[in-house]
C-alpha cells in the first residue's frame, strides 16, 4: 500500500488481519478461565481447608499481577527454561496462558458470588427431598448460579477481549497490531486509526454487556432468583 489508506481500508484491514486472533485469544482465554474458574470456586466453597486456601491464594496472586508482566513471564521467561520450543508457538501459548490464568481468578470470584447468592432455601429444599449435597449443587444450585453469573460474566468477556490487545506487544497480529500495520507509514493517521480501533472493540463489547448486563440483572430479580 503506497497510497494513504482510506477509512474503510483501515477498518477492513484491522478486521481482516486482526479479528481472527483477537477472537481466538478471547475464546480460549475465557474457556480455559471458565473451567479453571468454576473449579476454583467450588474448591473454595465446598473443598477441604487446603483446597480453599489454595483457591484463595490463587485469586490473590493472579489479580495482583499486571497482565503484561504475566505475558512476558511466559513469553520470555519460559523460553529461558523451555528453550527447545519454537518461540512463535510459545508466544501465542503465552498469551492464552496469561489470559486464562488471570481470567480464572476473576471467574472464580464471579461464580463464587453467584453460588452464594442463590437462595439458601433452595439447598435446604433439595436436601429435604433426599438429594445428596453434590446432587443438590449440580441440579439445583449450579443452574441458578450460572444464570445469576451472566451479568458479571458478560463483563469478564469484555475485559478479556480488551486485554487481548496486549498480545500486540509480542507481535501477535490481532486487531491492535493490525491497526499499527495499516497506518504505520502515515503518521498523521495514527490517532484516527486508534480511534477506529477503539470503536471496533466497542462494537464487540457494548452490545454484549448491554444485553447481558444490567438488564439481565433486573430480569433475574423479577424471577425471584438471587438475593439470598
Amino acid at each position: 500500500m503506497s497510497d494513504t489508506p482510506t477509512l474503510s481500508e483501515i477498518i477492513f484491514n484491522i478486521i481482516g488481519r486482526g479479528l481472527y486472533h483477537t477472537l481466538l485469544l478471547t475464546a480460549l482465554g475465557l474457556l480455559i478461565g471458565f473451567i479453571l474458574g468454576i473449579s476454583l470456586a467450588l474448591m473454595r466453597l465446598y473443598g477441604a481447608k487446603e483446597l480453599a486456601w489454595f483457591s484463595s491464594g490463587y485469586e490473590k496472586l493472579f489479580r495482583g499481577i499486571p497482565l503484561i508482566v504475566l505475558i512476558y513471564v511466559f513469553a520470555f521467561g519460559l523460553p529461558d527454561i523451555l528453550w527447545y520450543i519454537d518461540p512463535l508457538e510459545l508466544r501465542l501459548g503465552s498469551v492464552v496462558l496469561a489470559l486464562s490464568l488471570r481470567s480464572a481468578a476473576y471467574q472464580s470470584q464471579i461464580f463464587r458470588g453467584a453460588i452464594l447468592s442463590v437462595n439458601p432455601g433452595q439447598m435446604e429444599a433439595a436436601r429435604a427431598l433426599g438429594m445428596k449435597g453434590s446432587q443438590a449443587v449440580r441440579h439445583v444450585v449450579m443452574p441458578q448460579a450460572l444464570r445469576l453469573a451472566v451479568p458479571s460474566w458478560s463483563n469478564e468477556y469484555s475485559v478479556v477481549i480488551k486485554d487481548s490487545s496486549f498480545a500486540s506487544a509480542i507481535g501477535i497480529i490481532e486487531m491492535t497490531q493490525a491497526a499499527y500495520f495499516v497506518s504505520v507509514n502515515f503518521r498523521e493517521l495514527w490517532a484516527l486509526t486508534y480511534l477506529v480501533l477503539a470503536v471496533l472493540y466497542f462494537l464487540f463489547t457494548y452490545p454484549v454487556t448491554r444485553i447481558f448486563g444490567e438488564r439481565q440483572s433486573k430480569k433475574l430479580k423479577k424471577l425471584g432468583m438471587g438475593g439470598g
Binding site: 490487545s165 491492535t176 484516527l192 480511534l195 477503539a198 463489547t205
Partner: peptide
C-alpha cells in the same frame, strides 16, 4: 468498552495527527 491501550495511543498520537 474499549481497551486502555487504544485509548492511550489515541491520546498520545493526537497532537501529531
Amino acid at each position: 468498552g474499549t481497551p486502555l491501550l487504544a485509548q492511550l495511543f489515541f491520546i498520545y498520537f493526537l497532537p501529531s495527527s
